[in-house]
């Protein structure tokens, strides 16, 4: 087990290195002059050259790469060219917002996906089944950015029930971070007003982000359930008068747990990446919005930083799921 773990971690490290190389190559294929961006619009040649030296852009590419690697090893993501700010500091500021959104969306996906999947299986081929199946596919087919705009339009603009965007109202000063997750921090400090405010801001983006994940979980639970209901022992149990409800709770859900877990692992990294669209729509101050606004401006250091962070999340999530699989299902433990 330990050997397996070490091998996996080693592999993840190797992949992270690959990712660094990849992002570095991408950020240098652009035919752009980062120094001009750093120096600002009205800068003359002397300021541009100054900026080039300041950012080490005058060095040959291999040297820049080595420097980036050493900096990364020290936990330093470099400086954004457009703003001159430390990417690491910015990432630390924006990551909790994204994390909070992803966790909530994941929770919504599981809490709604599992029961809906069970329902669908119990009513197999009935109207409820067709409806949930189409709903499930819709979750994957709905363009999140468009659906987000629709929700914004309906709940914020027309009904006036929820705020349009952001994480908190402008007038609310966020509390000093404990975990950085506002919902958690507000509960920890017993500030229920803040909790409600944070919840009202996060709910729409979380719904939009949760849909694809919800759909996957729903489908897996449905198919596992359908399968389980076909099993001999279930039929036998039924014949012995065990209520369907009990069968669902005891047998089928147990079967569905592992695949659900696998989906959580897969979708975790995926959500971190697709949160880009949701954050753009809801002006959510997370790493996705940070990546997009930097990419549009042609500022690649932040994009590289976000890619690495999301990649890291991918790998860690997969690792954890693999390990949990091993623990939960000894048959799958690998040599």
């Amino acid at each position: 087990m330990l050997g397996y773990l070490l091998r996996r971690i080693g592999l993840a490290g190797l992949m992270l290195f690959g990712l660094v190389c990849l992002t570095f190559v991408i950020s240098n294929v652009a035919p752009s002059d980062p120094a001009a961006l750093a120096a600002g619009p009205d800068a003359g040649r002397s300021q541009i050259e100054q900026a080039r030296r300041d950012y080490g852009l005058d060095k040959p590419l291999p040297e820049q790469f080595l420097r980036y690697l050493t900096d990364l090893a020290h936990g330093d993501f470099g400086r954004s060219i457009a703003t001159g700010r430390s990417v690491g500091t910015d990432l630390a500021r924006y990551f909790p917002a994204t994390l909070e959104l992803v966790i909530l969306a994941m929770a919504l996906g599981v809490l709604l996906g599992v029961p809906l999947g069970v329902l669908s299986a119990l009513r197999k081929d009935g109207p409820a089944d067709h409806a949930t199946r189409i709903f499930a596919v819709s979750g994957i087919a709905l363009p999140p950015f468009w659906f987000g705009l629709l929700l914004q339009l309906a709940f914020a603009t027309w009904l006036g029930l929820l705020p349009t965007s952001g994480r908190l109202s402008v007038f609310t000063e966020p509390p000093p971070p404990i975990t950085g997750l506002l919902l958690v921090d507000s509960l920890l400090t017993g500030n229920f007003g803040l909790f409600r405010e944070a919840l009202s801001h996060i709910i729409l983006p979380a719904i939009v982000l949760s849909l694809p994940c919800l759909a996957s979980i729903l489908r897996v639970n449905r198919s596992e359930m359908v399968e389980a209901l076909r099993m001999d022992y279930v039929t036998a149990a039924r014949a012995h008068g065990v209520t369907p409800w009990r069968i669902v709770m005891v047998h089928a859900l147990k079967n569905a747990m592992l695949p659900t877990l696998a989906i959580i692992g897969l979708r975790w990294g995926w959500m971190m990446s697709s949160t880009v669209l949701v954050e753009t729509v809801f002006d959510w101050p997370g790493i996705g919005l940070y990546a997009v606004s930097s990419a549009i401006a042609g500022d690649f250091k932040p994009v590289m930083g976000v890619t690495l962070i999301v990649g890291l999340n991918f790998m860690i999530a997969n690792l954890i799921v693999d390990l949990l699989y091993g623990v939960l299902d000894p048959r799958l433990r690998r040599a």
Binding site: G160, L161, S169, F171, R196, L199, S200, I203
Partner: peptide, 17 residues
């Protein structure tokens, strides 16, 4: 109107202020 709506949004701060 908001009080009649979902519990979640009741008393939401920052709106209509």
């Amino acid at each position: 109107l908001m009080a009649g709506a979902a519990l979640l949004t009741a008393g939401m701060p920052g709106i209509g202020m």
